[in-house]
Design a protein around this nucleic acid. Structure first.
Lengths: 116, 116
DNA sequence: ATAATATATCAGTGAGTAGTGATATGGACC
DNA sequence: GGTCCATATCACTACTCACTGATATATTAT
């Protein structure tokens, strides 16, 4: 009975941070941007064309991704070229895809979140 | 100029589904539950004790996690014991922790989402 | 059967955030 | 220096979701 509480020793702050990181990925726009960058570094206007999102929207999300350290940017002439900052991120995205192979139907079935 | 559009070929539906899956993880309560289950399967009331969440709240999140296929349940006498459904999920959680080692400060700095 | 405990469901409330449009900044080329 | 284009910022609206409290269902034990 005493050891029930033994499972709580993982710091709660770490959980908050993890949730925040997941939230960074949990948006179709940001995922679309990351997906585009997965293939090659791109300038903002290219991402706009690519994702069909509005430019301020893309800039907003890029700023968020930049703050979180998920992407990095380099100025290239008059463009600013964005790229995924670490291979760990592409690895994570791949893992999610692998996991989705298993739970895709379940995720589709779950109606707790907006379907689109 | 034509190949700019070449990066958009990954199906958009897959992106929506990925976002939905990430959203499943992007909540402190659900992460706390998964974290508790990472160590051993637990009954609902144990999770309640463990995470200090209210019982209806835990049930709600468990239903969500169950629908998404992230956890599985087995009846054990009068208890219902929940467990993480696939090792891929624990692997994913580990990946996130590893990624956090790199981007932790950035995530903390990003104020687009609620800090707590 | 009845009581007690474990778990699930429901409705309402409040907060946080994504998207949009207009606008501002800033570097590059003429 | 001035103009153009790429990118960033701001304010607002509407929507979505997490949490809570009360309640319902189910299963075991007496």
């Amino acid at each position: 009975m005493d050891q029930i509480v033994a499972c709580c020793n993982s710091g709660t702050t770490a959980i908050e941070r993890r949730a925040k990181l997941f939230r960074g990925f949990a948006d179709p726009s940001r995922l679309a941007i990351l997906d585009a960058l997965r293939e090659a570094p791109l300038a903002v206007h290219e991402i706009v064309t690519c994702t069909k999102l509005l430019q301020p929207n893309v800039s907003n999300h890029l700023r968020c991704l930049l703050d979180c350290g998920l992407v990095a940017s380099d100025r290239d002439g008059r463009f600013i070229r964005y790229r995924i900052s670490s291979p760990r991120i592409t690895a994570l995205l791949n893992d999610v895809d692998v996991l989705l192979d298993v739970v895709a139907e379940g995720v589709d079935a779950c109606d707790n979140y907006r379907g689109t």
